[in-house]
Amino acid sequence: MKLSSSFLALLILGGLTSCDKFKITTTEEGDRLIIHEKGKSGKTAKEGDFLTFDMVIKSSTDSVLKDSYKDGQPLMMPLQKGQFKGSFESGLAHIGEGDSTTVLVSADSLFTMMNQPFPPGISKGTDLKFTVKMRKVQTQEEFQKEIADKKANEGKYIEDYVNKSLKGAVKTPEGLYYSEKTAGNGATPVKGDTVVVSYVGKFLDGKEFDKSELGQPFSFPVGMGYVIPGWDKALMMMKPGSKRTFVIPSTLAYGEQGAGGVIPPNTPLVFDIELVSVKK
């Protein structure tokens, strides 16, 4: 369940329409852009500014490699200096708030820099297409203020959610809320026991960001730090066969750092969890 913090991991994950009919603009820095739409603000980022955007990555044959729209959550990252000419990061510096732009990135340059072999479906001499819809460009000061406001109001957001969507939920001393759908049987797991779980992870607005694969529950030793603290605490309160919905505050989830551009900082999470079995 742990999410990768590497932005480049996005390349191996799973649209946008073909952009071959659009004109390619090459900047003085060597970035190649296809401009689909210009925003009204014209606000672009400088190195260190924080960006929030939706993105679809496609191969040269239009196979979708990543789609943040399907993931249900925009990506968030500081603008960093590109590590090679024509990099995605360099292209981002030309995309203003509200713009929709495709950045063409040489697969040869990218995978040479990553020191990784070409994955299936990506050939040498081709380009990857990063199509970005820029939602927000913020200075570090603006971003930090937004995060501080969100942190200060997190408790209220959770209470509002519970009162609306999880009435009757129990609150634990650690700050977890839970509602039991199915009572289990047997002993609750203890630290070191191997648990098998099925789950769906959502934000307070109901959008899913993660779930176990159908027919392939997730297995790990509980209480050993393999998952977020809220999960360890939640599972050691459940019995085999139990199904519960948990609301986990950010302090027991991914905290002030967030996770991999998918989970923003100071974000409470909702999990539907089934404890399938426990192995002592």
Score class of each variant (00 low, 15 high):
T25C: 06
T25W: 12
T26P: 15
E28W: 05
E29M: 09
G30S: 10
G30N: 09
R32Q: 13
I34M: 08
I35Y: 05
H36R: 04
E37A: 10
E37K: 08
E37W: 10
G42Y: 01
T44G: 14
G48L: 07
D49G: 04
T52I: 13
D54A: 06
D54M: 11
D54E: 12
M55V: 12
I57E: 04
S60L: 07
D62S: 14
S63K: 15
V64K: 15
L65G: 11
D67F: 10
M77F: 12
P78C: 00
L79K: 01
Q80V: 04
K81I: 05
S90G: 13
G91S: 07
G91P: 00
G91F: 02
G91K: 07
L92T: 02
A93T: 05
H94T: 13
G96Q: 05
G98Y: 03
D99W: 05
S106L: 11
A107Y: 14
A107G: 11
A107K: 10
F111V: 01
M114C: 07
P117V: 00
P120T: 06
F130W: 05
R135I: 10
K136H: 06
K136L: 08
K136P: 13
V137C: 01
T139A: 09
T139E: 01
T139M: 11
E141C: 03
E142Q: 09
F143C: 03
D149K: 04
N153V: 09
N153L: 13
N153E: 11
